[in-house]
């Protein structure tokens, strides 16, 4: 059972309308690379010069990866990676 990546509505144009994409990988970095290989047009939305854009937060099972091992955070089969726009609150 692969990792599940939740796609927020603004990015669904790039995933053929899919709200959730199954990806393989043992870290967030590798799973996202697999997402990009399936849907190449999503790459420029998520990354700028190879780095995750500053206004995107990533969560593994609801935990912000910046408090884990960032892009090297380990993911296991069945876990959920959520891509969430960061500009909210206050």
């Amino acid at each position: 059972m692969p990792v599940k990546i939740e796609i927020p509505s603004p990015l669904r144009d790039h995933t053929g309308g899919k709200t959730e994409v199954a990806a393989t990988g043992t870290t967030v970095q590798i799973a996202l690379a697999d997402l990009v290989s399936q849907f190449p047009s999503i790459a420029s939305k998520l990354f700028d010069g190879g780095k995750l854009r500053p206004y995107i937060n990533l969560f593994v099972n609801d935990e912000d990866i910046r408090y884990l091992d960032d892009m090297d955070t380990a993911v296991a089969d069945g876990q959920v990676i959520a891509i969430i726009p960061a500009v909210a609150g206050g």
């Binding site: 603004p10 939305k45 700028d48 854009r53 206004y55 726009p85 960061a86 500009v87």
Partner: peptide
């Protein structure tokens, strides 16, 4: 809408 669809920057 609160963020840019291109780069997720604040609107």
């Amino acid at each position: 809408i609160n963020f840019c669809k291109d780069d997720f920057g604040p609107l």
